[in-house]
Write a protein that binds this DNA or RNA. Structure first.
Lengths: 294, 294
DNA sequence: TGAATACTTCCGTTCATCGGAATAGTTGCT
DNA sequence: AGCAACTATTCCGATGAACGGAAGTATTCA
């Protein structure tokens, strides 16, 4: 193709457009897309038109665009995430029925927790996570559980990449982190008080797949008050045990020993994309105050 | 690009690869992908490598490919489908808790029902649907409810496109269909006995959004026996009412008056793709016996 | 009504994409 | 082990699809 100034291939352009959407801004105009994707308007127009013709984008009456259901349909065949989700769901529902607070299922993706499912009550405490949302490993209860079972080189990288602080309870040093992680390994759970929001407490336990590999974490978010958490932890533990049992009889592709191609672990999004200022979603999604811009 | 023999653009090639996966075959080798997508092996290799680098595909240890979680992540920002799903979930869970059988949420997509969510019990009766799966409108209880609120031109097209018969109870004529649809409009629900599987009964009711437009259907699949279904229907009705109420206060992009660009309604997948024999998934997914091939 | 902003179409240039062919790796059979 | 059949990967020159500046059209707002 001609003068491909921006992101190399056609695919990366298309993805740059699709990635411009996030939970905060699900409706974008052509111009916004163009700016967010860092592509010329004319090119954006052409790309967007093609994406629409394939059902990856849909058009609203006010001419803004939204992501199309086609995308969702494709995603439904993802075995890595959705196989796990399918199997885990019934148990997650059980936990939710008893605890009645945010209940979530997360996996390690790149250098974040990715939440595959979240069950909520309308009046539950505030919760930072979204389905399909990510949180840094060091700050969330689920993340810590997942991190606890990773090689130390991986932990080091997380620390080097910077430990974002949501509150003044968020873990902010390597020593604090390694202490917490070894405690998790010996005790088999974690209670994170106010790491992300002062009023929220996260409780998480690991879910094991075949040959004792940690494949996911389940967690609940409850108010950060004097309520004892032991009962909740035990419920989580029992659910996780059941899930592990169910998982053992199902084939799921191993995701955890995360390939490290050039010695480094793969970051959450393609580095080429990650580094682009205009994409912004990744870095910004972590900040306490979400600032959607065009 | 050079000698672009097959599907026009780069995007359509990429999509052809991604679409080669379905629930029955979530793991495919390069050669299988090449065959299914109808693309030269070398090209497939190149495309697949790029898709992998963007996280849209992932590689298994045995060198087969699977769809990547990135896809799922993107899909999580789809407001059309997922906004609805988010809002509907709690009520769907309530229904499921009481009924204890397959409970599902479906929307009209192209000329099919697309199921956004399904809650099941391990020991529930057989059920043809999958999350992200489709069923023809005339054959499923959800589909009939959705179809009942569409213009007659749309119904005609469905009939002209052919009414696939799963069992000898499946609706197979225009007259039968229009009779059923008008009954649905006056009664506000449908009971479909053995339309898809002789032992399964579907019960469905419509979910209304703003200004009384039908945006979805919720349904349960129960055994097709002498058990009275009135109680179940009433539970569904009440849940649908609650959903409609919740939906009224949320903005959801209107999906239903389905744009008809050239007089015809848009078929489920790009016509260019649909007509390709080698893709096969669409047509085949409807047949009683799923026949996954390379 | 006029100006600013957003969207769409046009079209000549160009380089990323294309895929045949050759090479390397794997599996299974005798 | 040796061979055959299959699968995956790399190479590379030709070429036309994708590129985006610019000009035209529609919409919004004061």
């Amino acid at each position: 193709m001609a003068n491909a100034s921006a992101g190399r291939s056609a695919l990366s352009r298309h993805l740059r457009i699709l990635s411009a959407f996030n939970a905060d801004s699900a409706f974008l105009t052509l111009t916004q897309l163009s700016r967010r994707a860092g592509l010329p308007l004319a090119s954006t127009h052409r790309l967007v038109t093609e994406l629409e013709s394939h059902g990856l984008l849909e058009r609203n009456e006010d001419k803004t665009y939204r992501l199309g259901v086609r995308l969702w349909e494709l995603a439904c065949c993802t075995p890595g995430a959705l196989g796990l989700r399918e199997i885990a769901m019934p148990y997650l529902q059980d936990v939710h029925a008893v605890v009645g607070q945010h209940t979530q299922l997360g996996i390690l993706e790149g250098t974040d927790v990715l939440f595959l499912e979240r069950l909520s009550k309308r009046n539950a405490v505030v919760n930072a996570t979204l389905i399909g949302g990510r949180l840094p490993l060091h700050a969330s209860s689920s993340g810590l559980v997942l991190l606890a079972h990773m090689p130390s080189a991986f932990v080091d990288q997380i620390v080097n990449d910077g430990l974002f602080s949501y509150t003044n309870h968020t873990i902010r040093s390597l020593s604090e982190l390694t202490a917490t992680l070894s405690e998790i390994r010996s005790r088999g759970f974690v209670v994170a008080d106010g790491y992300i929001h002062p009023d929220a407490r996260g409780i998480a336990v690991p879910v094991f797949g075949a040959n004792q590999v940690v494949v996911a974490a389940i967690s609940v978010v409850v108010p950060n008050d004097e309520t004892p958490w032991e009962a909740t932890r035990d419920i989580l533990r029992r659910a996780a045990q059941q899930m592990s049992l169910a998982l053992r009889s199902a084939y799921l592709p191993p995701r955890h020993p995360q390939a490290l191609p050039g010695g480094r672990y793969r970051p959450l999004v393609n580095s080429s994309v990650k580094s682009m200022e205009y994409l912004g979603s990744t870095a910004r999604r972590y900040s306490a105050v979400p600032t959607p811009r065009d």
